[in-house]
């Protein structure tokens, strides 16, 4: 299973970024091989639609689940179309969130905020 997490830094000890679309990096964690890699979030400087662009980036990585604090409505629509599991992050490091995920301790993400970004 492949999990994506918005990351402040390129390390599993990094806190999860509060923002989804504007996160500096995404951690892509493969539970099968227990390996991780970090992607630059090319959408973070986008002057609008950052959530959609970031979601497209992750969907293209064939992720199965996303762990995040928050998510806009538009990005959520992209993930729903891809059948990505959406999970609510807890205030711990990326590694601890992944551990919690594997123990099925993470709640599903309910509070999708409206994601308006027209010019």
């Amino acid at each position: 299973m492949i999990i994506a997490v918005p990351a402040e830094n390129q390390s599993l000890d990094s806190p999860i970024c509060q923002s989804f679309g504007r996160a500096p990096f995404f951690c892509i964690y493969d539970t099968g091989s227990e390996s991780s890699r970090f992607l630059d979030n090319t959408a973070k400087e986008a002057s609008g639609g950052a959530g959609i662009e970031a979601a497209q980036l992750l969907v293209d990585q064939n992720i199965d689940a996303l762990i995040t604090y928050r998510l806009g409505e538009n990005a959520a629509r992209v993930f729903r179309a891809a059948n990505t599991k959406l999970l609510k992050a807890v205030n711990l490091s990326i590694a601890d969130n992944v551990a919690n995920f594997l123990e099925e301790k993470l709640a599903s993400l309910e509070d999708i905020h409206s994601g308006y970004h027209h010019g």
């Binding site: 639609g49 959609i52 662009e53 992209v78 179309a81």
Partner: peptide, 17 residues
């Protein structure tokens, strides 16, 4: 404007963007 996305070969449109 990133008003379009493609998931599983299917186009999603965000008209408000």
């Amino acid at each position: 404007f990133k008003a379009l996305a493609v998931v599983n070969k299917k186009l999603l449109i965000f008209p408000e963007i």
